[in-house]
Design a protein around this nucleic acid. Structure first.
Lengths: 191, 191
DNA sequence: CGAATTTGGAACCGATCAGTCAATAACTGG
DNA sequence: CCAGTTATTGACTGATCGGTTCCAAATTCG
């Protein structure tokens, strides 16, 4: 009962994600959100409660989408090493194509390191990335794709860390050669 | 001639650096600066012009201090590999001791990726870090400390990237074990 | 001395901030 | 058709934003 919602709430969260991603939390005003989401100020607050809560929704969506994406790619791959290389090079491409945007997860970790909710969401997602990589590397080791004396979990922790570094260097406008070189050396650590 | 300045301008920049470091540019208000620097609003604007300009000064100081520090440590070291390990583990300690602060360079890169001046400063500093590492690794190779077929510049680009990742994971509240593992795997990439 | 210059402090500026609210519109069940 | 419920809208709020201006006091140099 009651008047039905006239805008797509999922699409609105997606647009909010895009805005926060590109501009950060502080630099995105509620006016930006009103304009970007295409809904009135009052509706925004009725639907999402506050800027903080909308940010939390947008961040959660980003984390789910990207962690899921990684798991999928790694699970689908018949060979793990090339799959990981492909993932890293894809990140390089994303950074080169749109260096201002970077990674919302990294942006959240740095801009909002004093906000427990954001930190927890970021931390949990890093854990998921680590697990996805560790799982894939475990399978790779079982199949002899990487050396038996390597510890998948440690390699995964290294890769998780390296990935965040890639995103930062992308924002610092490192060029393709720099990023590609870094990726190749990093992959060498798996041997 | 005229009344001499009664506050230490270098100390003021240091305090501004600390504030921007901990809170970021947007989240640090001019009121925070007035209070933190211990000088009046008018004096602040007379001495520094604007919040942006003060931020630029603070960032430049951070970059000089830390890039210099790295060059010094690497130059002083008789063995390069242990020196690099020491540098990385020191960063881990810093992250664990004060995870909210992180690295001003990383914070600047992510928060202010749309501001050309900041991006340029960050980019230049990344270049200095890369050069310092590449120089040290070149010497290490000449002395047989690392394999002759390794390319110092590529290793340096990898390490520069990895370092930024470490700082992000520190902000994401990764624990000592995680960070130490990542460092050890990264060092393995030098072999 | 007198001109020059910087100080702290407070008053003040227009702009923008995040968030609220009352009136209105659109829908459902009776 | 009507009562009840919910969504939409845009004007509105008080607070805060970065920055300016004015002042009397303090200090230096010529």
């Amino acid at each position: 009962m009651g008047r039905p919602r006239t805008f797509d709430i999922d699409a609105a969260v997606d647009r909010a994600m895009e805005l926060f991603w590109r501009q950060g939390f502080e630099a995105t005003s509620t006016e930006d959100l009103v304009e970007g989401l295409g809904i009135a100020r009052g509706s925004l607050y009725k639907a999402f409660g506050s800027k903080e809560q909308l940010y939390a929704l947008a961040l959660r969506r980003y984390c789910q989408r990207h962690a899921e994406g990684l798991v999928e790619v790694l699970d689908r791959a018949e060979q793990v090493r090339p799959a990981i290389r492909a993932v890293l090079l894809e990140l390089v491409e994303a950074d080169l194509a749109d260096p201002e945007r970077g990674c919302l997860l990294v942006n959240a970790a740095t801009e909002r390191s004093t906000h427990p909710d954001t930190v927890q969401q970021v931390s949990r997602t890093m854990g998921r990335i680590e697990s996805a990589l560790a799982g894939a590397l475990e399978r790779a080791r079982a199949r002899g794709e990487i050396a038996a004396d390597k510890k998948p979990r440690e390699l995964a922790q290294f890769l998780t860390t390296f990935i965040q570094g890639l995103r930062v260097m992308g924002k610092a406008r490192a060029d393709r050669e720099f990023l590609d070189n870094a990726v190749e050396v990093a992959l060498g650590a798996l041997d």
